[in-house]
Amino acid sequence: MSKTSISGMTGFGRADGASDGWTWSIEARSVNGRNLEVRFRGPPGFDNLERLGKASGQSRLNRGQVTLGVQARRAEAGAAALKVNEDVLARYLQLANQLAEEGATPPSADGLLGLRGVLEAPEEDEDIEAKAAIEAAIAASIDEAIDALKASRLREGQQLLPVITGFIDRIEALVADAENEAAAQVEAIRERFTRRITELAPDAPGLEDRIFLEAAALATKADVREELDRLTAHVASARTLLQQPPAGRKLDFLMQEFMREANTLCSKSATTPLTGIGLELKAVIEQLREQVQNVE
């Protein structure tokens, strides 16, 4: 995958491991988020894993709500490792013999072994170094799970890229249409103003000069060249940002600038076709904004 590929924020990664009688599995999930938030759920007795897991996520990801789930289990001691507590068994046998003399049924071996305290697992001293080694191995698996999550988010980014690029291309085409239509605004304003003035005061002295001045003033107010120039610049900025990930936050801000210029374009429009272009432009920008919210 290209280092310049944008990433999405939705994905899943998993890693499994085993060592020294321990087995574990890690799942890393993420969804959209304005900032980066890493949540951790882990097994008891491995308190340091939360710090390591969050640090791993923060070093690899930039945005999104990330959940790390760690499950770890130690193999239970087998029957061969169990031992009989002879003192406890002797007390049970003494009681059983007394009851048998009184007519009770003698106990079976299975019954005696099932009594509390007769069978016990050998106590194991906690090996601090061994536990630290297991914790380090689990932490390495957490890194693997987050790397798998990151790869999943990159695949989502590869799917998002053509969609986002398509919307940007459409905005660029609409801006070009608006530029062509805006060139006709001055003449449309002049014709409209001339028609109204001649209807109201056809014989007023200096009518042509007044028409020219008023039409020029209205055309100045309706001039949308600055808005179109800024929209063109925003299109170029969006394309540049897509080549410089992570760009999600900057693209979010750029969408606000896009919409601001489109709103101004609509408010200045003096012709129905230009208004129609402005409205379509706003619709496409909103569609682009929805997609940008998925970008890391």
Rank of each mutant, 00 (worst) to 15 (best):
L218W: 00
Q256P: 07
S237Y: 07
I197D: 02
E227N: 11
V235D: 02
E135A: 03
F167D: 13
L68K: 02
E179I: 14
S141A: 14
I197G: 03
V84G: 11
R230G: 09
S25L: 11
A130R: 13
E296V: 03
I128V: 15
L288G: 02
P205A: 05
T10Y: 09
A132P: 00
A139D: 06
V186M: 08
N32I: 01
V38L: 03
K83Q: 15
P205W: 06
E76F: 09
T275R: 09
R14P: 04
F258L: 04
L82V: 11
A104K: 09
T264V: 06
S56I: 11
S152M: 03
R260A: 04
R74S: 11
V224W: 00
D16F: 10
A238E: 06
R190L: 02
L52R: 14
D169Q: 10
L119Y: 03
V295N: 00
R63D: 06
F40H: 07
D47T: 10
T105P: 04
V38E: 01
M259F: 14
V163D: 14
A216W: 12
R230E: 11
V88Y: 07
E37F: 08
L265H: 10
R195G: 15
R63G: 08
E296I: 01
S237T: 15
G111I: 08
I168M: 07
E290F: 00
A151P: 02
L82N: 08
E50L: 06
P43D: 12
W22C: 05
I6M: 03
L251W: 09
G57F: 02
S141E: 03
G21I: 02
V186G: 07
W22Y: 11
P162K: 09
R249C: 07
I134T: 03
A100L: 01
T264S: 12
R260Y: 13
L52E: 12
T105E: 15
A178N: 10
E191R: 14
Q98L: 15
Q291A: 02
L231A: 04
A184W: 10
T10I: 05
S108Q: 12
T275V: 06
I277Y: 12
D147I: 11
E290A: 08
E286K: 09
R51L: 12
A100W: 00
A132M: 05
D169L: 05
L154F: 12
P122S: 09
G8D: 01
Q65W: 09
K54L: 10
G13W: 11
G21R: 10
N48W: 00
V295W: 00
T264Q: 05
T264R: 04
S2C: 02
L113C: 09
E27Q: 14
E208G: 05
K83V: 15
Q58I: 07
E227I: 06
P273V: 04
G8E: 00
K268T: 05
E280N: 14
G45L: 08
Q98I: 13
E227Y: 02
S30A: 15
G248F: 00
D16W: 12
E156R: 05
L218S: 03
A77Y: 04
S141K: 02
G64Y: 00
I26A: 03
A183Q: 14
T232S: 15
R289F: 01
F212G: 12
Q291P: 01
V31A: 10
W22S: 06
T275D: 01
L279N: 13
